[in-house]
């Protein structure tokens, strides 16, 4: 009996991500959920600009590449083109979703747009070589904050789930991580719920996945997973920030 194999919604291409990058795990979780819900054939994914720019190559469902930050707007169009049949998700990094695309994010949430947003927060711009992200931690050394992020100079990180939870619009906001087997299982549950909500017509569902970037954090893949526990989670606590149908507000 097969207990684990690559999901059908993910194709055979070898992904371009660095060794130990958790994008691969998150891609797989999204694909597993598509398989389990039986929606691959009617799902349209929207890829961002950033490390996961080429996500469109790896999923077997139809895919669209959006301009930097615009994925929620593109997803809005695709969803509204055929709300009954299209299942639409965006897959976005922190620069894409929380910096250049913040307006699109906030307004898609405020509209309770019936889409699923997978938000990968690894506190850095990976694709361009490790610059400061809107979610880089105070004191975090990056290429563009070489002396550590000075909050007096360039401000504080943005906590996306906390911020969006203040809106009346969104249906479901949860922050998860993927740095252990248990965490990956939890992340999958959240992602599945975020898709199920869309199928149930409940509206905007965002899962923030606290992720690693071993290459640009200057750590081994194993150290990077520990760094998530030590540095990221204290600043970005995991949990459900909004679950309207369940009557939950953190």
């Amino acid at each position: 009996m097969v207990v684990f194999d690559k999901p059908h919604s993910l194709n055979e291409m070898s992904m371009h991500y660095c060794p130990g990058c958790t994008h691969g795990i998150i891609h797989r979780l999204v694909a597993e959920v598509m398989d389990e819900l039986g929606i691959e054939g009617r799902t349209i994914g929207v890829a961002p600009v950033g490390c996961s720019v080429m996500a469109y190559n790896y999923f077997n469902c139809d895919m669209i590449e959006a301009a930097h930050g615009r994925a929620p707007a593109v997803a809005t169009g695709v969803k509204r083109a055929d709300p009954e049949n299209h299942v639409v998700f965006t897959y976005q990094g922190d620069g894409d979703l929380a910096s250049i695309g913040m307006a699109e994010t906030v307004h898609a949430a405020a509209r309770n747009e019936n889409i699923t947003v997978i938000f990968v927060n690894n506190a850095i711009y990976g694709m361009t070589g490790g610059q400061m992200a809107p979610t880089s931690l105070p004191g975090q050394v990056t290429q563009t904050s070489p002396y550590g992020r000075d909050v007096n100079h360039c401000g504080y990180p943005i906590k996306v789930c906390e911020m969006l939870s203040q809106l009346d619009g969104p249906e479901y906001l949860e922050r998860v991580t993927v740095n252990s087997v248990k965490a990956v299982r939890n992340a999958k549950k959240a992602i599945k719920k975020a898709f199920q909500n869309q199928l149930d017509g409940k509206g905007f569902s965002l899962v923030e996945v606290v992720s690693s970037c071993p290459t640009n954090w200057g750590l081994t893949p194993q150290q990077a997973l520990k760094w998530i526990d030590e540095k990221m989670i204290p600043y970005y606590p995991l949990g459900v920030y909004k679950d309207r149908s369940a009557g939950e507000d953190k």
Binding site: I44, I64, A66, V74, A75, T76, G77
Partner: peptide
């Protein structure tokens, strides 16, 4: 970009 999405569909 919403136009882009509908056009893509």
């Amino acid at each position: 970009n919403m136009v882009y999405g509908v056009a893509a569909a």
